[in-house]
């Protein structure tokens, strides 16, 4: 489970499954096909942004929150930590993202 939105050492990256996704954007929704599970997922723009950002490099929660706030600035609301936790957890459950170094760094 994702930790708090504060000074977490956890950084997240795409899993192999997350890297091989097929994408289709429809209106304001994204449809993803995950070949490793043969499942089709519907995700929102913020979840899609998280996946796109993690495809570039591993990113920690705090940075992700700031990047999301910047990306969706025109919406006028800052992302709350609980919402970010929810989306991160969901993407982890689907096996699309994973922690890079959080556990080893805390040992």
């Amino acid at each position: 489970m994702a930790q708090s939105h504060g000074e977490s050492l956890d950084r997240f990256c795409l899993t192999d499954s997350g890297q091989e996704l097929l994408w289709q954007k429809w209106d304001d929704a994204f449809v993803l096909f995950q070949p490793s599970s043969a499942e089709t997922h519907f995700i929102n723009e913020i979840s899609a942004f998280i996946l796109e950002r993690l495809a570039q490099e591993p990113v920690g929660l705090e940075t992700l929150g700031k990047l999301i706030d910047m990306e969706f600035e025109q919406v006028g609301e800052k992302i709350i930590p609980e919402a970010l936790d929810f989306w991160i957890n969901r993407l982890e459950e689907l096996g699309l993202i994973d922690r890079v170094d959080g556990i080893s760094a805390s040992l």
């Binding site: 429809w26 209106d27 449809v31 043969a38």
Partner: peptide, 26 residues
């Protein structure tokens, strides 16, 4: 109707979407 909705309705309506995997998605 929005294309996202149409996609969902077609995919769930297919007899063998799950069988054909990636081919069905495409």
């Amino acid at each position: 109707i929005p294309k996202s909705q149409a996609f969902l309705m077609v995919a769930t309506n297919a007899f063998n979407y799950e069988v054909l995997d990636q081919t069905a998605f495409r």
